[in-house]
């Protein structure tokens, strides 16, 4: 860890529980960043360091584009559809949302599909709709609490 504070274990545990108790989903999602399998799969594409670099430059599209490129590179089947830059960014948006919104312990279905099927704009849109309709609302309570518990931006 880069910034860690030397705080008593008991206090740390208590504070982590307090901070994340209303939104355990977010804590678990962040833990995914350290999961060995995911670290290898993403190869840095969604790491904090990568996000910070794009955030610093103000390049949100660039961030999602490289996420999409990584997803495409992980495909187990030949990807013969050349995605435009913006559609590759869309692929990144959908993949990122699937990664962090999929309930803990469940499979990230969009990512699995992207890995095993031809990725086309239509497939990206289909998965986006699915996440928007089926997955995101399930997490909304947690996110709402995060939104209003946190300092604003």
């Amino acid at each position: 860890m880069r910034n860690g504070l030397d705080i008593p274990e008991s206090a740390k545990k208590n504070l982590i529980e307090k901070r994340y108790a209303p939104f355990t989903f977010m804590q678990q999602s962040i833990d995914l960043l350290d999961d060995e399998n995911w670290v290898k799969w993403w190869d840095g594409a969604v790491s904090l360091d990568t996000a910070v670099a794009y955030h610093l430059k103000g390049d949100r599209v660039g961030f999602f584009h490289q996420v999409g490129q990584r997803v495409k590179a992980n495909s187990a089947v030949p990807q013969d559809v050349a995605l435009s830059h913006s559609d590759a960014a869309a692929l990144g948006v959908v993949s990122f949302a699937d990664f962090i919104l999929t309930p803990w312990g469940e499979e990230a279905e969009a990512l699995i599909r992207f890995t095993h099927e031809r990725i086309t704009p239509a497939v990206i849109l289909e998965e986006a709709k699915k996440i928007s309709k089926e997955i995101a609302p399930l997490k909304s309570l947690n996110l709402a609490k995060l939104f209003f518990t946190q300092s604003g931006s």
């Binding site: 860890m1 880069r2 910034n3 860690g4 504070l5 030397d6 740390k12 504070l15 982590i16 901070r19 977010m26 999602s29 962040i30 960043l33 904090l48 996000a51 910070v52 955030h55 949100r60 961030f63 990122f96 962090i100 996110l143 995060l146 939104f147 946190q150 931006s153």
Partner: peptide, 16 residues
């Protein structure tokens, strides 16, 4: 992305 990585930055403080 903003909230996720904002929290990821916090994570570094809490975990060590």
């Amino acid at each position: 992305p903003l909230y996720f990585y904002g929290e990821a930055q916090v994570r570094d403080y809490y975990k060590r």
